[in-house]
Design a protein around this nucleic acid. Structure first.
Length: 579
RNA sequence: GCGCUCGUAGCUCAGAUGGAUAGAGUACUGCCCUCCGAAGGCAGGGGUCACAGGUUCGAAUCCUGUCGAGCGCGCCA
């Protein structure tokens, strides 16, 4: 109905433009949406007010002119003009209830649209360094990216979800060193772990598993440097890595390195699977250099004249493309920087032919955006095709105090711990119910000990309650459900009309949440549906003795259940039939 | 210092490409199970939308400034 009104108004406006009644070449941007106050009708448009300025007429007068020339569709009860110039449509009550038939017909597919059809989207998220288990900070990006993937697919888009694995670089060397030192300790050697190495308990587990697999094959006396040799802790760490490499030899070092990496990656995969997050591809950073993609990307930049040498290093002239300064891509020691990998990775993404590339990053990386966009521009690509979505890290609170987290020190709450405590459903919903680009205070005590208060239970309860009603009602087969749908005109109560109107919004909400990259819009909407349903349930008896009314109400309940189930599924939250 | 993101009820947050009387959860108070699930419902108080200007029919929303908060500014990843 909304769409019919949209086309009606659109053709009307087009006609006015053709006749020269409007001093415009293109139709203006107006909206048609349900007004906040239901007393103003079922749908409302600001068309006249938007036209007022270019027409130099009063919006009220303009609205009257438009309405007078508008033919009233058969599903509209009346059209009213209200100050300062709204045009309000009140639908016939039967028309509002038609959505129940649509919902029951579409069933699991209700909420899907075609606005994203033909688009091919790549979405990269989480991409946490495999140097330790995922913690609760990563959970937010995981929940967000996963929900967004589902939302985009619901609009008909093809979506390729990807995890970029940082399996190269210094962090991984530190990890390998940390595992090796624990391994040595396990074999009775008296070696110390540097403070800035990875000290989490999981390092011991990996070392133990390495010992179980390889025995004492990596048992070599290291020559660790004295603490006093160098004042800089990071430099001492690099020296330790060098000693680790030379002590083990390249082959054994690679074995330890690979073991550490895959061990942690396996854990991350398991955690994400338990969290309901799936990827189509795990893209290895190491593969970029192995396949020569980094060199190729830098060659492309060089060919365009955007790379120069200074102080022995190679620089990309990113400041010519809006970045605040130029960036090193090849260090003086000949090693490529992380940024160089990222250039190659994004160049490769663009070559794959996506209509849209989405990166979901922690907000602390926001300063990184200009240089990546600059690189794409320098490569001759359109940076606007890359959309970088920032997720603020959740600030953790325990006992009213902020929890400081550090992967290296091993002091953090893992995603796995969170899932064990509150479950996947509560955790996912907790993350998604707020805008992801805003700071989030994650109260662990609340999430863990008082999980009853978590809003997700409110939604799931509504779903379970409906399922319970159907159990009470006995066998309601497809034929009976259709009879109830056919009898929907019996639903004359205000709450029934309001509920039906609300259910009709799901496709719009899904489309809007996908378009704005804001899954929380759907979470808020579902809460509204649950509120409306619980209120309805308390006000009116569903299972009345009167068969026709009872069937109609059951049909409405079935529609609510479908909306809740579909919406929750898009957020990655289960819809239990009983709790 | 520069840049990015913000500032809405006691607390945590919504507010749909600017719309009609700014909402919810929570907390507090009082009601509602002989009746389909009380993990629920109903009712109540609580606001100078940080502050000051500007844009226009209309601003929490857009622009400028001030104050305040978080984050970022490496040949780290």
């Amino acid at each position: 109905m909304k769409q019919q009104l949209q086309t009606l108004l659109a053709t009307h406006v087009a006609r006015m433009i053709d006749r020269g009644e409007l001093p415009l070449a293109e139709p203006p941007a107006y909206v048609i949406e349900p007004p906040r106050n239901p007393e103003h009708g079922d749908l409302s448009t600001n068309l006249a007010m938007v036209l007022a300025k270019p027409c130099r007429k009063s919006p009220l007068e303009l609205a009257r002119t438009i309405v007078a020339a508008l033919e009233v569709p058969d599903f509209v009860e009346r059209i009213a003009v209200a100050p300062p110039g709204f045009i309000n449509f009140t639908l016939k009550s039967g028309a509002l209830l038609d959505v129940i038939a649509d919902i029951v017909d579409a069933d699991a597919r209700y909420g899907e649209t075609t606005q994203g059809a033909g688009s091919y989207v790549q979405i990269e998220f989480v991409s946490a360094n495999p140097t330790g288990p995922l913690h609760v900070g990563h959970g937010r990006g995981a929940a967000y990216g996963s929900a967004l993937t589902r939302l985009l697919r619901a609009t008909g888009a093809r979506v390729h979800a990807e995890y970029y694995v940082n399996d190269a670089g210094r962090q991984m060397d530190i990890l390998a060193l940390s595992v090796w030192l624990r391994y040595l300790q396990m074999h009775g050697m008296r070696v110390d772990l540097p403070d800035n190495a990875y000290r989490g308990e999981y390092i011991r587990d990996i070392a133990a598993a390495l010992a179980a697999r390889d025995g004492d094959r990596h048992l070599v006396m290291p020559a660790l440097p004295d603490a006093g040799e160098n004042d800089d802790a990071e430099a001492r760490l690099d020296a330790a890595i060098a000693i680790c490499r030379s002590s083990l030899g390249e082959e054994r070092y690679r074995a330890v390195h690979a073991w550490a990496c895959t061990s942690i990656l396996d854990g991350i995969r398991d955690d994400l699977a338990a969290f309901g997050v799936e990827f189509d591809q795990w893209y290895s950073e190491r593969s970029l250099s192995d396949t020569g993609r980094i060199a190729a990307a830098l060659d492309r930049l060089r060919a365009h004249g955007h790379v120069y040498v200074k102080d022995g290093a190679q620089w990309f002239a990113s400041s010519a493309f809006g970045d605040e300064k130029d960036r090193v891509v090849i260090r003086e020691n000949g090693a490529a920087t992380y940024f160089a990998s990222d250039i190659a990775y994004h160049a490769e993404k663009f070559e794959r032919g996506y209509t849209r590339v989405l990166d979901i990053w922690g907000a602390d990386h926001h300063g990184y955006i200009p240089r990546v966009k600059a690189a794409l521009a320098a490569l001759g690509e359109d940076p606007a095709r890359l959309e970088i979505l920032l997720v603020q890290f959740a600030a953790l609170y325990r006992g009213g105090e902020r929890v400081q987290m550090s992967t290296r020190s091993g002091e953090f709450v893992t995603l796995r711990e969170l899932l064990d405590e509150v479950g996947t459903d509560a955790a996912r919903f907790f993350y998604i119910m707020r805008r992801s680009d805003q700071h989030l205070d994650f109260d662990l005590d609340l999430a863990k000990s008082q999980s009853q208060d978590n809003p997700v239970y409110y939604l799931q309860y509504a779903h379970a309650r409906i399922c319970s009603i159907f159990r009470q009602a006995g066998q309601v087969d497809d034929t009976q459900l259709r009879q109830g749908v056919a009898a929907r005109a019996r639903l004359v109560e205000k709450r029934e009309q309001a509920l039906a109107a609300l259910l009709g919004r799901l496709p719009d909400v899904v489309a809007s949440a996908a378009r704005d990259r804001e899954p929380h819009q759907l979470a808020n909407y579902l809460r509204e549906v649950a509120v409306e349903f619980h209120a309805y349930y308390n006000a009116h008896k569903i299972l009345t003795p009167e068969p026709g009314l009872r069937a109609a109400r059951l049909a409405l309940c079935a529609a609510v259940r479908i909306v809740l189930a579909n919406g929750l599924r898009l957020l990655g939250v289960s819809a239990p039939t009983e709790m």
